[in-house]
């Protein structure tokens, strides 16, 4: 395997993605916006709307200021990790599906693959180059968005309670699970790229992986599972096995002419 060719493909694909504002704009802008706005909304609900809502719903007068503060802090802590965390865990899936679909199915759609496949590049070089082109920006963007969301949470919480609540170990493990989610998504795009006509189809099919992640906040709120270190260790282990299986099948079934 010629690593120079692998890096040439990775670099070309990344340049393509980041030279078109229509691709990278929503990809960076939307999650960054949510990373800013969702923690602020969480804080607002916990401090101001929470007690009022509780009074309305349960007809209970919340009179103690310290009780309001403590329940607010607990609410922010729970919500920012158990609800917002899984929401931001969908980031690597959505980002990887956009980049990988553009990288694999996009070559087919734009009819650029013919010239690419006419060069002496092997299937493994092509596959690795394109997987890296999707994986690297996805991982960097996920870390960036987690950093924004963590910083915003800490800043607003510190302003009121003079404590930092992030990072917690489960929160860090959520971030650690993200690359595994990205790899599973990329693998799925590789698998389906030979069978779809364009990027939209590839993207839509791969975002199916978002659904199981969106169940996590509900199982946490309903008390079905505790989003503890053990939970995320098990999740990462399962994702690791899924990644191995998907990437193995992708590598085995990937044929260059699939993107022609």
């Amino acid at each position: 395997m010629d690593l120079g060719k692998v890096l040439a493909i990775t670099s070309k694909d990344m340049k393509e993605v980041f030279s078109s504002v229509s691709i990278y704009g929503p990809m960076i802008g939307v999650p960054s916006f949510f990373a800013l706005i969702l923690p602020i909304l969480t804080y607002y609900v916990a401090i101001y709307a929470g007690p009022t809502l509780a009074e309305k719903l349960a007809s209970i007068a919340v009179t103690s200021t310290s009780a309001v503060s403590m329940s607010g802090l607990l609410f922010i802590n729970f919500f920012s990790v158990n609800v917002l965390g899984p929401i931001f865990m969908t980031m690597p899936i959505l980002t990887a599906s956009v980049i990988a679909a553009d990288s694999f199915a996009g070559e087919k759609e734009r009819k650029t693959s013919e010239a690419l496949l006419a060069t002496p590049v092997s299937s493994s070089e092509l596959l690795l180059g394109k997987v890296l082109a999707s994986f690297i920006p996805t991982t960097l963007l996920t870390v960036f968005v987690f950093a924004i969301y963590g910083t915003v949470i800490n800043t607003i919480v510190y302003g009121t309670f003079q404590v930092y609540i992030l990072p917690t170990l489960p929160w860090i493990m959520m971030l650690m699970a993200s690359p595994f989610l990205a790899i599973a998504t990329i693998g799925l795009v590789v698998l389906i790229s030979a069978h779809v006509r364009g990027t939209k189809e590839a993207q839509q099919i791969s975002t199916i992986l978002v659904l199981p992640i969106l169940i996590i906040p509900f199982i946490s709120v309903l008390g079905i599972a505790d989003l503890s270190v053990t939970f995320f260790t098990a999740l990462i282990a399962v994702l690791f096995v899924i990644d191995l299986v998907i990437m193995y099948i992708s590598a085995k079934t990937f044929r260059k002419e699939g993107i022609l």
């Binding site: 040439a8 070309k12 393509e16």
Partner: peptide, 23 residues
């Protein structure tokens, strides 16, 4: 090929360097 098969968002020299490196 019958379509030009170049990467639209890359420059002319960017395209040629990419294909040249693969060659």
């Amino acid at each position: 090929s019958d379509n030009y098969a170049l990467y639209d968002h890359l420059s002319v020299i960017g395209n040629l360097k990419f294909f040249g490196r693969l060659d």
